[in-house]
Design a protein around this nucleic acid. Structure first.
Lengths: 220, 220
DNA sequence: AATTATTTTTAGATTTGTCTAAAAATAATT
DNA sequence: AATTATTTTTAGACAAATCTAAAAATAATT
């Protein structure tokens, strides 16, 4: 059974692979996990011995099938717990992640299957990210960046790209939650600032950077 | 912040103190935690340095106020989680303990207070044990052993003393759950076997050992 | 292509929690 | 009270996960 540390490495490699593609470097892992590059190298050797990763010295690292499956199961647990914390316990949007980071390491298949059932087999977590099922399959969705919409377009918010706490709080304060309906009132050609209107008529200005951090499903 | 290992030692010392009174010996800790006596001695020195325990060489150990408060908070977390697992997730009576052993180590005050609120501030867990509140206070109850009842007495089951898995499953199969109503139909003077009748009319024979492991609240 | 800069790995230590085997202290027994 | 048995502690070692500093490999630059 993998230690919490091993699980965190596997998760980090999975996430960085998504973002950076191909292989992940020692330094990007050392950044992401806030440990020294030397420690990362040590651990990579161990993970490689356990056949969880494909590791070539100086060349970076990728997950084996076994490692990938472990990562997806961790993702499943993390997102189910986030859903529970947000939907049932009413813990704030920006608070759920840190707690789920701990809960995801609890080892019990029975627990996770009962939790999944209790939550009614949710397909997406509170940040709009898809929840893998017990076999590791997850639903993809036709989502685009809010920044790609044009004036007059209408859409529903489906996910947030980077879960920065301050940004999540900002979105929440402007009623820009998951599932919120938005209308693009205006888009400034100069700096790509977008003005959106929510259901209640409230209007909010979003910088290019912000609107590139929100996924929406366009209504046609 | 205490490690999981430290938390487990503190909990063990607390539980064994309840059972054995006064101070706890190295060997009973080593039995209970399934580690060598030498390891226990090592750890006791560390806990003593941290002022979590009062430790005198060769003489045994007891908790300081700080240690006791840590133990009670762990008990609170454990029992709240057991309640959640049993009442909400419908995990079986005998399965909840092991999972709660892991969940109790998750560090988040917000989580526990939200969980407590979600469960509607329960006073007792699924095994009938009292749940300490956020200040460590818990409700005591006028409970007696089932073995102390006489023929004709009526009572409600309120708790189980030792949570042996097989015994819990036996109780459950005979509808002898927490809150179940029982009538003492007969008590054999020879070996103190007790025959009880539950609400549905079903009768069950309980050995002296079994009836000494069940707490009831007598109806007068 | 040679030099400089960066990244990665090795070497050697440290901390936490554990172990076995031996020594010391306490308890039990004759 | 002296001996034997048991419990507890010390001593020395080990695995997991980490660190810093130095060496080696790779990448970038002149």
């Amino acid at each position: 059974m993998a230690s919490q540390t091993v699980e965190n490495y596997i998760k980090a490699i999975f996430q960085l692979t998504q973002k950076e593609g191909g292989t992940v470097s020692t330094s990007s892992l050392s950044d992401h996990l806030a440990t020294s590059a030397a420690s990362v190298t040590d651990m990579l050797k161990k993970l490689s011995d356990q056949k969880l990763i494909e590791y070539i010295k100086y060349r970076g690292v990728s997950l084996t099938l076994t490692g990938k499956s472990m990562a997806v199961q961790l993702l499943r647990k993390h997102r189910l717990w986030e859903t529970f914390l947000y939907d049932k316990l009413k813990i704030s949007w920006d608070g759920v992640h840190e707690i789920a980071e701990q809960l995801e390491h609890v080892q019990s298949d029975i627990l996770i299957e009962h939790l999944d059932h209790y939550l009614d087999h949710p397909k997406f977590d509170p940040h709009g990210d898809p929840i893998p099922d017990a076999n590791g399959k997850f639903t993809l969705r036709s989502q685009v960046l809010l920044s790609s919409l044009l004036t007059g377009d209408q859409a529903h918010i489906v996910a947030v790209r980077e879960h920065d706490t301050e940004f999540l709080q900002f979105l929440e304060s402007r009623k820009l939650n998951i599932a919120a309906h938005v209308l693009i009132v205006d888009k400034l050609a100069y700096d790509d600032t977008i003005k959106v209107r929510t259901q209640d008529g409230q209007e909010t200005l979003l910088s290019a950077k912000s609107s590139q951090n929100v996924y929406v499903k366009k209504m046609n």
